[in-house]
Each structure stands twice: as structure tokens, then as C-alpha cells.
């Protein structure tokens, strides 16, 4: 064997198993995408319900792709990949949840309409 060439996966069954993993992951991803699409255009749900369902479907698809395409947590990947991934999830959660939390608070507390502002000033004046 040429020294430049990587190790051939000698066992064809291993090869077939790997292809099968990708096919299952692909089928599940398509199914989840179409479900999200149909739920959205059919207007079955509204408000927070559709948001919750769509986020749920996206998270399932995230896990499907992480397991079937990235093989995360399997023997083929080192556990350090998983640790770095979990650290990234922590940073991203702080970033996204923190931003949304702060900005919604600012929106509701610091951006009054003119009418609200006049009412507020009157109420403060009345109290004095």
C-alpha cells in the first residue's frame, strides 16, 4: 500500500452501515423539515404554540444531524469534541437568552409612547 494513501475501510459491512446511518439521518431531516413547513402554511396553530412547536422540531433536527451526520458522542469522535460542543452551547445560551431578556425589558420599560410618558409625568406631578 502506498504510504500516502489513508487506511482503507476494509470491511464492506462497515461501509454499508455508514451509508445507512446517513440515509436514516437524511430521511428524518426531510420528514422534520416537511412537518415544520406543513404546520406553518396550514395555519393550524397560532401565537406561542406555533413558535414552541417549530423550535421543538428544529431542536430534534439539530440532534438528528449531530448524531447521524456529525457522529457526536460515538466512538469515532473524541470526547473533547463533545466537551467543546457543550461549552459552545453554554456560551450561545447566555448570549441569546441574555440578549433577548435584556432587550425585551428595555423595550417594555424604557420605550414608552408619548401618551404614556405624559400620563406618567402627570401621575408624578399629582403625587408631589
Amino acid at each position: 500500500m502506498d504510504i500516502e494513501t489513508p487506511q482503507i475501510i476494509s470491511d464492506w459491512r462497515e461501509h454499508a452501515a455508514e451509508v445507512k446511518v446517513y440515509i436514516v439521518g437524511f430521511a428524518l431531516s426531510i420528514l422534520l423539515t416537511l412537518t415544520a413547513f406543513v404546520i406553518t402554511i396550514a395555519h393550524i396553530l397560532s401565537g406561542w404554540e406555533i413558535v414552541a412547536v417549530l423550535i421543538f422540531l428544529a431542536l430534534i433536527q439539530l440532534f438528528v444531524q449531530l448524531i447521524f451526520f456529525f457522529h457526536i458522542g460515538s466512538k469515532a469522535q473524541s470526547k473533547w469534541n463533545l466537551y467543546i460542543f457543550l461549552f459552545m452551547i453554554m456560551i450561545v445560551s447566555i448570549l441569546v437568552i441574555g440578549s433577548l431578556w435584556i432587550m425585551t425589558n428595555l423595550n417594555s420599560k424604557m420605550m414608552p409612547t408619548t401618551k404614556q410618558m405624559i400620563q406618567y409625568m402627570n401621575s408624578q406631578g399629582a403625587a408631589l
Partner: peptide, 23 residues
């Protein structure tokens, strides 16, 4: 790895930007 990663990012764009925008 890069390509699968971009696919995952797109799932979230599809969900958060497009599907939630349309809903």
C-alpha cells in the same frame, strides 16, 4: 464538517426567520 455545520445553521434560519416569519 463545515458543510454539515452550515446545514444545521440553515435549519435554524429556516425555522426562526422563515417559518416563524410566515406563521
Amino acid at each position: 464538517l463545515f458543510w454539515h455545520f452550515l446545514d444545521i445553521i440553515w435549519i435554524f434560519i429556516f425555522t426562526i426567520v422563515y417559518m416563524m416569519g410566515i406563521a
